[in-house]
Design a protein around this nucleic acid. Structure first.
Lengths: 295, 295
DNA sequence: ATGTCGTTATCGTCAATTCAGATAATTCAG
DNA sequence: CTGAATTATCTGAATTGACGATAACGACAT
């Protein structure tokens, strides 16, 4: 049983037709047909039901498919493993939530690309859901997402624990003052849909119905907008303390259950971790000192 | 990267020479050399150090080897998975400890082979250690061994829990009477080294130094030997109660920690379970009724 | 009915690969 | 130096693989 045949088979199963698979595999249809047939002859069973409009898997084909995919991935990984001699090089693709993790990762990325100039670092952005899907699809090697993540095929490691706080204009005494009005404008980083979602849920839970949005590109403008009374926002406490000390806004704590947020790094359990990634995590992993500072 | 090449590569790595691998693979040396070389050219690294007396793996080869083995196994399994349509057939090879589990399994085997005549059932015997090695080596699909087993690649399921008791001649009042003498003869089933080991450890712990053995082929003769005062033995309590009620021997209980023994079924976590095995376990799994009887 | 479009199956041709066997080159032991 | 191992290389035959053209089939619109 040839691995290349299995790759063909998987492609056919995926697109549901030998013609379409052929163009995807940069070959001709007769070739695909032939390889599928050799596979079928070798195994002694039909793998596809041939229809007038493409093919569908037989029961035996269904059983074979997961193996075909697994073998293909395993071979990919073997190639990488052989070439990875412990010295980070090549392309490292990781995912990250857009706001906070990216902000925290920036210094890491800077020192990393200096320390390992042979690595082409690619940072993909997305929501937790999107990023997890990409990790599962082998599109990224791992991702920093909003934890906890519970998935059979994934391993997670907690990287940052943070406390979220609500920022309002200085005149606002408590969060109740805001929610009582029943009509709130929230100011969000235009890329930061994670916090936006959390803040919305939080307000909805408190009975706020009319939520409007203001989007700004930088944290600085968000801060100014809040201090000018244009709306409220949600940020990690550690960010405020370190950046603005002018007390132009009010900081409102939230109950433990709502304020605690963890950023975890997830990657596939079965996939090998490249040296490039190992070194990155080593750099990104908070030192005991930094962890204390983040709390 | 061809799977057949990987198989060749793994064989060469295993036997440490292209010549030897060639004869093992039923081909010629030049062939093996060529395929290894294509693999090396494709990956761009040397996989072997060529020596005057065979070859040894390079660092890159070391990294590739586990993948080569894994892929080979995966392909084997894929073949089985395709052919296994849910109807048990073909060969089912399982391992079992020689005494108790085998005794308990006998009725299961009987009804199983009647229910699934298309399955060639092969029962391999061995010690817990040996059987686990065989499971890991894919020699048997799974095995009934003495639990608990803690291994990363294995899954275990408890099948029987039993209480072991010491049997002595009727005149012996307590176990102390035996151990005080400091010279004990133990009667064991000649195949049953598991209990033998347990009994020896138990006696050694109690300060007995001179242990001699008597071996008999059947439980009946062991029982007779014990009742005649020739020695002592160790058996599951459930076996005694159900077989002999003539009170010709004394039964001595043991402390919880020493008497409790569990028989577990272990199989590889990553390997697929054949329909044949699934059905076997379904039959072997103790019903609530039988479990109560065994306690 | 008929033609068109999209599908898979099949065939012949040619190139590439693979195999087996023979031979060379190397190294170590005696 | 010779002999017994080893791996490397070469060669011709056989096999396999890809390709392109064509056939066969069904669906759908005209």
């Amino acid at each position: 049983m040839d691995a290349a045949d299995l790759k063909f088979f998987a492609a056919v199963a995926k697109v549901g037709g030998m013609n379409r698979a052929a163009s995807k595999l940069n070959t001709v249809q007769s070739n695909v047909t032939a390889r599928v047939r050799t596979l079928e002859e070798e195994l002694g069973v039909a793998l596809f039901h041939r229809g007038h409009n493409g093919v569908t898997l037989t029961a035996a084909g269904e059983r074979l498919l997961p193996y075909a995919i697994k073998v293909t991935h395993l071979l990919d990984e073997a190639r990488k493993a052989v070439k990875d001699d412990g010295e980070p090089r090549g392309r490292l693709t990781i995912g990250s939530l857009e706001t906070n993790a990216a902000l925290r990762l920036l210094p890491v990325i800077a020192s990393y690309s200096q320390a390992f100039p042979d690595v082409d670092l690619v940072l993909r952005s997305g929501t937790t859901h999107e990023l997890i899907a990409q990790v599962l699809a082998h599109t990224v090697e791992g991702a920093f997402v909003c934890g906890p993540v519970d998935h059979q095929d994934l391993v997670e490691e907690v990287f940052f624990r943070e406390e979220l706080v609500v920022l309002t204009a200085r005149t606002v005494r408590s969060l109740d003052d805001v929610t009582r009005k029943g009509d709130v404008k929230i100011v969000v980083h235009h890329q930061g849909c994670a916090y936006r979602q959390i803040l919305e849920n939080l307000l909805i839970k408190r009975g706020v119905v009319g939520i409007r949005h203001l989007e700004f590109g930088t944290l600085e403008t968000i801060y100014r907008a809040v201090s000018a009374g244009l709306g409220i926002t949600l940020l990690p406490r550690s960010l405020i303390g370190s950046m603005w000390r002018d007390n132009a806004v009010s900081v409102h704590g939230l109950p433990e259950a709502e304020s605690r947020i963890t950023t975890v790094f997830v990657h596939r359990q079965d996939a090998l971790m490249s040296s490039a990634l190992k070194e990155f995590l080593k750099l990104a992993r908070p030192t005991p000192l930094r962890m204390r500072a983040a709390e």
